[in-house]
Amino acid sequence: MTSRRFSTALIAALIAAMTSAPASSEAGDGRRSGYLFMSPQTRAMQDDDMANPGMLTVLEGAELWSRPTGPAGRSCADCHGADGSGMRGVAARYPAFDVAEGKPVDLAGRIRKCSAEHLLIEPPAFESRPLLALMTFVAHKARGTRVTTGEDPRLSRGIETGRGLWRTRFGQLELSCAQCHDDNAGRRLGSAPIPEAHPTGYPIHRLEWQTVGSLQRRIRGCLTGVRAEPFPYGADELIALELFLMDRARGMPMETPGVRP
């Protein structure tokens, strides 16, 4: 009786521990977020909004969101709501198909397009502070929602392009993304664990960068790592890779702002 009560308590404690764990880890089907490859200290940093440096970028984005700009004196908030609550879950379906362009567009591209067409300003430069701040603010609104990118059938061609690039060997080292992140995920490259490359926490605060950065920056870093010339920011190839990766992570919860070593 005592032991049964004990095991019931144990199970209850386990369930409590599982449900209180951040929604940032599992997909229930064996796919693992990069979060699970990190040290307990780095996880704690991501989990605590008071210690997660990405939250400073979210604050920065919130300020830009409602600041009137351009000749028309408009702000993002004028169309999308003052607190951005209309953006809930939006980042979880990006890159999305853009009808006017006839091709997929990622969050950075959408914000740049919106800046040019609606705010009538020069679009913020790739990887600039204002662009990253707005991306982080919008993606933070999707935190906890499940990735749905790829449900739109018009994206299938882009996904296949991305899959092709994922399997292409690049650079002097002649390595494909898949050789590390599919074939050897969970093992180590030197001292660093090789994650499964699910882009659910982007833009991430990377400790190595000492700042927030985009998925495109991360992919470009990998390309430099295999000694290939990286695709320029905003290139269709990078968007195709983003699209393929988000589709591959479909159903996993968003974690933005993620912290990664």
Partner: peptide, 9 residues
């Protein structure tokens, strides 16, 4: 007390 301030350092 916990403080986090934005600065490039």
């Amino acid at each position: 007390i916990r403080t986090l301030v934005q600065h490039p350092m």
